[in-house]
């Protein structure tokens, strides 16, 4: 989880991600930011997030991002 926080902090500095549940819906994470986030998550965790996973529910909170990473890492 900490590694995800670190990546998010690098993409959008000075943002409180803890407890946020609407990162995509509130446009904190824009489509351009998500591209960057996906690219960094893929590299950091050696996983492959594809457009199939690009739904707001997977990116609305740090927890959902964490769950996505765990799910893809375990496949």
């Amino acid at each position: 989880m900490e590694r995800i926080y670190k990546i998010l902090e690098e993409i959008i500095p000075n943002t409180d991600f803890k407890g946020a549940t609407n990162l995509v819906d509130a446009k904190i994470l824009t489509s351009l930011n998500i591209v960057r986030l996906v690219s960094m998550l893929n590299e950091e965790f050696d996983i492959e997030i594809t457009p199939i996973h690009l739904i707001p529910e997977n990116f609305n909170s740090v927890e959902s991002i964490y769950n996505l990473v765990v799910e893809l890492d375990g496949e």
Binding site: V38, S39, N42, I49, T50, L54
Partner: peptide, 15 residues
């Protein structure tokens, strides 16, 4: 968007 933009923008090469 799905078949060109996404694979290019998240590609390891570009990263």
């Amino acid at each position: 968007r799905d078949y060109v933009f996404y694979p290019v923008s998240t590609s390891k090469f570009l990263r």
